[in-house]
Amino acid sequence: MQTVLYARVSTADQTIAHQRKQAEAAGFRIDAVVADEGVSGVSTVLAERPQGRRLFDMLRAGDVLVVRWVDRLGRNYQDVTETIREFMRRGVIVRTVINAMTFDGATSDPVRMAVRDALIGFMAATAQAQAEATKEAQRAGIDHAKGREDAYLGRKPSYSAGQLADVVAGLDRGDAVAAIAKATGLSRQTVYRVRDNRVEAEAALARWAA
């Protein structure tokens, strides 16, 4: 049996090394790392990514697939739910670093199966909702900047796109502000600002990137 970390890196603010460090800090002993760089989780399903295809070839029953969160597998509800269920059918255990979730096909109890499947669906839906909200905010920010040559950009955000994504994920899970600040390295005030006006936080990043 082996424990494989799958890392997806889509922006310069994310790194494979950081995702591995997070996994090891959570107690995982990683035997191998499989990673896709510069790949969108929205437009490219796992099975169509170069290294994503490799996962389906290398993982066997009893193996453990570790991901930072389900959004590394994808940001499309249908793709993520089908991917996790396919791995479970093959006897692969899927575990997340964030929230320490475990998904496997071991149980045959219908109630536990229903709870497990509902949780998978909720997490997959959250990943897609986050992606859609970020895309809309970025579009609004870019349109605003393009429409005014002297557009005021405002204060440069103190967070990266990767940090913002982690803050949003934590807020959506109901994590405490203090815990999110510690995990992301941001101040509590910054986390509060994102919580109180998420769209503006995402638009600010888009304005400075435009």
Results as ranks from 00 to 15, higher is better:
G62W: 03
D63S: 03
D63M: 03
D63E: 02
V64Q: 14
V64N: 11
V67E: 04
V70F: 09
R72I: 01
L73V: 06
R75W: 02
N76V: 04
Y77F: 12
T83W: 01
T83V: 07
I84N: 00
I84P: 00
I84G: 00
E86Y: 00
F87M: 07
R90I: 00
G91M: 01
I93F: 04
R95H: 05
T96N: 06
V97W: 13
I98K: 10
M101S: 08
M101G: 06
T102Q: 04
F103K: 01
D104Y: 01
G105S: 04
T107C: 14
S108D: 13
D109F: 02
D109L: 04
V111K: 09
M113Q: 10
M113D: 10
M113G: 08
V115E: 08
V115L: 14
R116H: 05
L119N: 11
I120F: 11
G121L: 06
A125P: 13
A127N: 05
A127G: 08
A127I: 03
A127H: 06
A127Y: 03
A129H: 08
A129Y: 03
A129W: 08
Q130P: 09
A131I: 13
A131E: 11
E132M: 14
E132Q: 14
E132N: 14
E132S: 12
A133H: 10
T134Q: 09
T134A: 12
E136V: 11
E136D: 13
E136W: 11
R139Y: 05
G141C: 04
G141L: 04
I142L: 11
D143K: 13
G147C: 06
G147S: 09
D150R: 15
A151C: 14
G154K: 05
G154V: 04
R155F: 05
K156G: 10
